[in-house]
Amino acid sequence: MKKYILTISLLMGLLMPVAAQSLSGSRFEERSLSLGGGYTNMVDTYLSPLRYGGGNVSLMSECFSQTTIPGGRWFAQSLFVLHGDYATPASGNGLTVGGMGDYSYTWYYEAPLLSPQGGKLRLFVGPQAQLRLGGIYNLRGSNNPAQLKLGANLAASAMAKYGFALWDTPMGVRLQADVPLLGVAFGPDYGQSYYEIFYLGQGEGCVHMTSLHNNLSLRTHLSYDLQLRPCTLRLTLANDLYQWTLAGKHYRMFTHSVMLGVVKNLYRVVRDEEASRYIPY
């Protein structure tokens, strides 16, 4: 297990600095910030066998930028999604509240065969590193009131972008899908209490390896961009289907959100290093 965790950490660690290094020169960059809300549906059998339904509020920040790798086909995306959820069971008794922060870093390659240079449809694929940290709290629990949600994944991501114009107004549609493939997640044993883990320090075995056999999840973002001056408006339908089966416990969370945001397109120019070192006086 330790070797597995080490391998995952190493692969995730490699993704980020390599991409960061390739962002050091002049490049195109698209930054967006969206806010929205929607529907949440969750089941966590450690807390309750019942399905809970409710709402969520979400904040999403994204930076999509071209790298300086020659050829202009490599891109990097840094995506942070923060959402707070509340849900009740069908009976109306009980309340579960939760909060989750998702960070992902993706290194995209623009597929040359499917999206020729200058074409309207552009397709990207690439590896993604995901970090997920959050928790849910059930107000009816005694010694099992909450679940800490902590996980890291290596995922596969694909994105399609299509640009068009209507009534002389430039627009774009984008679809992104992420599927985690390998990872690690924290979770107590089937009937283990947090008293044992945190108070008695008996937390051995709480880190589990995850892959498609126990973590079949999918995140999709369908966005529509409307270019206005001085910025672009973005409407996103965000669907996050996240499910873990760890130590015989099931956790499923579906969030469907509508988000409205703004996009700022930038072209970052790096000054000449020699010139920047010149001190006139």
Binding site: P49, L50, A90, S91, N143, N144, S193
Partner: peptide
Amino acid sequence: LPFSSELPNG
């Protein structure tokens, strides 16, 4: 050590 759960009727 007691745990809690719930029934469909609340």
